[in-house]
Amino acid sequence: MGLTYTAERAQEIADNLAGVKAKLDETLQSKGTSTQTARLVAVSKLKPASDILAAYEKSGHRNFGENYVQELEEKSKELPGDIKWHFIGSLQSNKCKVVAAIPNIFVVETVDSAKKATTLDKACAAAARSEPLRIFLQVNTSGEGSKSGMLPSGALEVAQHVVSTCSHLKLAGLMTIGSPNPDLENGENPDFKALNECRTTIQDALKINDLELSMGMSDDFERALLQGSTNIRVGSTIFGSRPPFNKTAA
């Protein structure tokens, strides 16, 4: 892929990252809760590995998100081993072995069924990972047919399945994309509210209290933070617009 970048490009990315981080910090401070923290995932899909290395070296950034398994696999081999990779695309069952074999995969954010969890669990066992792989359950809170994810009503059942039968996975949180143009109710995004409610239901039922919420992207991450997001996924604001998708990269 090539890892050479210009000083100008590195500075551009650094400035963009700093801008997002400043908004993140300002938004959390506005809530008046000094204890809440949130992770910024720089979504680097369809961007060259050199952009990631620029963010890594110039800004010290470590969390990056990829949507396509082949692209993630290639970048993970070429880039530093302490990068924390987030897989945030639709995960096909036949790609689970590839993802599970990536040593520094930090979390798979898009597990959307018990069957997918079982397949990924078996893949992790075969890869002999040293510790359970963190996963988020993807919940389709907007009910849009174009989006992946289980309905909120099915999230508890899948969570129970993961906790009780998938010993090579760690249930770490919930993820949603949400509607691009939600009708705000009392200033709240109903899709983000629904994910919060899912978390409460699961935590109460399973007697756990540390599930993360991955919600919020370039256009709505500040609203997501106000509604409790602990993991925001921002791409174009950091790296700029993306080239057209090439299906061979999936």
Rank of each mutant, 00 (worst) to 15 (best):
T141R: 03
F64H: 03
K122V: 00
A100S: 05
E144Y: 02
L46Q: 12
V111M: 10
A125C: 13
R129M: 10
F136Y: 10
V139R: 03
E74I: 07
F87M: 15
R134C: 11
N67T: 06
R62D: 05
V108G: 03
S59R: 05
A100Q: 04
N94T: 03
P80Q: 11
G143N: 14
A54Q: 04
A114I: 15
V41R: 10
I88K: 02
E109I: 07
D51A: 14
L137S: 05
E109Q: 14
K115F: 04
S142F: 09
S59Y: 07
E78C: 12
T119K: 13
F136E: 01
I105Q: 07
S44F: 04
K47C: 00
C96D: 10
V99P: 00
S90R: 11
E71G: 11
K45M: 08
F64S: 01
G145I: 09
V69A: 12
V41F: 08
A55T: 08
N94S: 11
A126T: 02
A100F: 04
T119A: 15
Y56H: 13
S50R: 10
K58L: 00
A126C: 03
T141I: 04
T141N: 07
A127M: 08
Y68E: 04
T119E: 15
H86F: 09
E73N: 08
E78L: 15
K115P: 00
S50K: 09
V111N: 07
K77C: 10
I105L: 12
K75D: 01
C124K: 13
Q70V: 15
S90H: 12
K75C: 05
P48W: 05
A117T: 07
A128K: 15
R134K: 14
A123R: 05
G89Q: 02
K116Q: 14
T118W: 13
A114N: 06
D112S: 14
A125W: 04
